[in-house]
Simulated scan of single mutants.
Amino acid sequence: MTLRQDLAYEQIRAAIDAAEGKPPEEALPQLRAAAEQITELIDESLAAAVLDGGASLRAAGAAAGLTENAVGPRLARTRSLAPYANESGRVTADGVRRAQYDAERGMPPPASTPQASLRFKPRRRAT
């Protein structure tokens, strides 16, 4: 386990602990924070499974309870595979192979930034 993963687990536990015993309306922000951390941890674990563990996109997705079509966009949000996303915002098997090739040769990945996860933005209220 990496230091980043350890920190993510600590943040998830802290958010859940903060929500425990509170009324639902007060617990929601902490539960949302925990859910976001879990989603990020799942995405990063998917990336590690296909890059380092040798899992296929389908196998990694199945292990996470996702369809194969849901894996590519999630991998595109990760630090390690975001630079290998195609123009439609997905990482394909070709992108994974390229990332593995670059890593084996000690080459830096192409310049890119991870895509932010989609978030609900409430409409402004007219007053």
Rank of each mutant, 00 (worst) to 15 (best):
L28E: 13
L28V: 11
P29N: 05
P29E: 08
Q30P: 06
Q30V: 05
Q30R: 10
L31E: 06
R32M: 14
R32A: 13
A33V: 09
A33L: 11
A34Q: 08
A34M: 08
A34G: 08
E36F: 12
Q37W: 11
Q37T: 12
I38V: 14
T39L: 15
T39R: 13
T39D: 15
E40M: 14
E40A: 15
L41Y: 09
L41Q: 13
L41T: 15
L41P: 12
L41E: 14
I42K: 14
D43Q: 14
D43G: 13
E44C: 09
E44W: 10
E44K: 10
S45T: 10
L46K: 04
A47S: 08
A47Q: 03
A47P: 03
A47T: 04
A47E: 02
A49F: 01
A49D: 02
V50Y: 03
V50N: 02
V50C: 03
L51N: 04
D52Q: 10
A55W: 01
S56L: 00
S56M: 00
L57T: 00
L57C: 00
L57A: 00
R58V: 02
R58E: 06
A59M: 02
A59E: 05
A60K: 11
A60Q: 08
A60R: 10
G61E: 03
G61L: 04
G61I: 05
A62D: 10
A62H: 07
